[in-house]
Write a protein that binds this DNA or RNA. Structure first.
Lengths: 349, 349
DNA sequence: CAGCGCTTCTGAAACGATCTACTAAATCGT
DNA sequence: ACGATTTAGTAGATCGTTTCAGAAGCGCTG
């Protein structure tokens, strides 16, 4: 049971230098066609699978993969509709560029919390072990240590939040939230609950700490507040961004003594959970209570959810281009949003 | 602008051997707590990000990532409902094991076609460059050269098809298709079109070559044939497994002079496309024409699609365990399926 | 006090490629 | 036919770790 041949072994067998074997795979133009043929034939015959990826990327400093950071849950990439579409856009560009796409696990990081060194090491472990040519950070708090690790490694990072020097793809979270808030206000809603996902886990509390909010969430909450003018606004932290969280918050809202006439969520995912639960409770959104979301994911249309549309797939594509297309030099791109009014909002009773 | 420090630089600065710095990160128990503290402090201070991933995996022969092979399109991972759920299960296990998940691009490979060496190199390029501890192959034809490359690299591969020696997670494609065929037969359908995805691209033809079918598709087609007994069966190749392909085939069916009373697709994705198009054409599935799918993806329920349910998430999880859980030694697992009868099938007119 | 087992740490050899700079031979223009 | 350029190929250093065998130090025991 002999071990696998290395590039050197192939070189020896072919009577050429190791450099030539390397060139046969990576730089055909540096080699006569005949020599290349001979080398590749021999390699195939010896069962040589081509240059070893780690050795190759150690020396060349390129790995052919870009990473996407997940600070919550790896499964989020496939479960959350916003994320799925973003990933689709990213994958599209990765494919064009011939790059592989690495889904990186990094631990959840709460800004206000102090971490021991070992906890912090565990937090960034996924990123420490991965060979990357670049990474995308969406929903990763700018203070997350993984960003420092990647910077120390000189791995380019692009994000969806204004961070420390990284390039980014943004939308006008605040402005579009203002517009949405005004819409609710113009419908006469004077008592509103704003629901946001946050890094708090556990039961929805009535007071998410500012430091526990992702930047986009803070901007949306602030925008809604502004747009809602003098209305009585209660901000509720839903925990992680899932429909289940939305449902949990719906129960909380239903139990309120002074029930709001509208509930505005910082994401469609949360809003869809709210809608579901309200409907189950016999409260038809639009008539009994108004609900709004954010993102305009695919299910929002069928559900009749009023929301802010953002071009998610385009966002993914742009992030990908920033990493993979050298001719793409812009350092900050802002994409347009649009208020989509559907049946889940109506005049306050 | 000094370059980044290496492990060795940290070792020199700390007055210890490189081995100790390595151990500080990877084997705390080999080191006194004090020494470890000192080393990690210094590393942090010097802006050392930890062991270089490529160097580390070159030496240790582990990368901390497992790969999923995509022979069609990377975006498939996020677009196709079957695939999304499978990936979710895989991601779940990867997360538990602390592994990253690499989405690998490999070119589409048609068995009957001859490839030049360069075409073949391009076909496997994604897999050649990636450092992997294992890979999952779903919908990759057993003859695809990427499987040979991975074998030559000693990368363990698990698949969803009976292949050459790999471990696999299966369902009884044939048996469940027989059952589905019998269901149609018992409803009196005597003229049936079977629609399958295949590696043929382009217009749906009336004759998919056997070599262009993925194993699961061939088994399902055969099973349907058997279950349909003496019915007149026409097999149609839809090309890639998308709703758009399903719609295209629907048009073809609508144009047939001897229109079938039922259409059976080898996947829900195709079936959902068919349903849509039939409905658009004013043909209510179940009454005008019967339609069946395969997989029982999430949309199948709301669409009223009769189909075969398979535990897709569990499949993903099992594939993940096979790669990541050393105590999981089974080499072949078969999961149970269930015929789900909904409104898209009804007695033949 | 020799001998033993532990813990803690080190030296040097891999791991498998690619890069830079260079040479020898072939081709070119005039 | 002769220097100038291009082409084909090579030598040797280098990328940054981890691993393995073993050394040094230390407290014990008999």
């Amino acid at each position: 049971m002999s071990s696998r041949p290395s590039l050197k072994a192939v070189a020896v067998a072919a009577g050429v230098s190791p450099a030539s074997v390397s060139n046969a795979y990576n730089r055909p133009e540096q080699l006569s066609a005949a020599a290349r043929e001979r080398i590749l034939d021999l390699a195939a015959q010896m069962g040589y699978a081509g240059p070893h990826p780690s050795a190759s990327s150690l020396r060349s400093r390129h790995s052919g993969s870009i990473g996407m950071l997940f600070a919550q849950d790896l499964t989020y990439a496939f479960d959350d509709p916003y994320c799925t579409v973003l990933m689709g856009g990213l994958a599209e560009i990765a494919m064009e560029a011939g790059a592989n796409l690495l889904l990186l696990q990094v631990g959840p990081h709460v800004v206000s919390q102090a971490y021991s060194r070992d906890e912090e090491l565990r937090l960034v472990q996924g990123a420490r072990r991965a060979a990357l040519d670049g990474a995308v950070a969406d929903g990763v708090h700018p203070a997350h240590p993984v960003l420092r690790v990647l910077a120390e490694r000189d791995v380019p990072v692009v994000s969806t939040a204004v961070g420390t020097g990284e390039r980014c793809v943004l939308i006008d979270d605040r402005g579009s939230a203002v517009e949405l808030g005004r819409h609710l206000r113009s419908l006469g809603h004077r008592r509103v609950v704003v629901v946001t996902d946050s890094m708090d886990e556990g039961d929805p509390s009535l007071a998410p700490a500012d430091t526990h909010l992702f930047p986009y969430a803070r901007l949306r909450v602030d925008g809604l507040r502004e747009g809602l003018g003098g209305a009585e606004v209660t901000v509720v932290s839903a925990g992680s961004n899932t429909q289940a969280s939305g449902r949990r918050v719906a129960d909380l809202v239903l139990a309120m003594t002074a029930r709001p006439t509208a509930v505005a969520a910082t994401s469609d995912t949360l809003a869809l959970g709210l809608l579901q639960r309200f409907r189950e409770a016999g409260l038809e959104p639009g008539t009994g209570i108004s609900v709004t979301g954010f993102d305009d994911v695919q299910q929002a249309g069928p559900a009749g959810l009023t929301t802010v549309r953002q071009p998610v797939r385009e966002k993914g594509r742009t992030l990908g281009r920033m990493l993979l297309d050298p001719s793409f030099t812009e350092t900050r791109v802002t994409l347009a949003t649009e208020l989509i009014i559907r049946t889940s909002t109506a005049p306050a009773p």
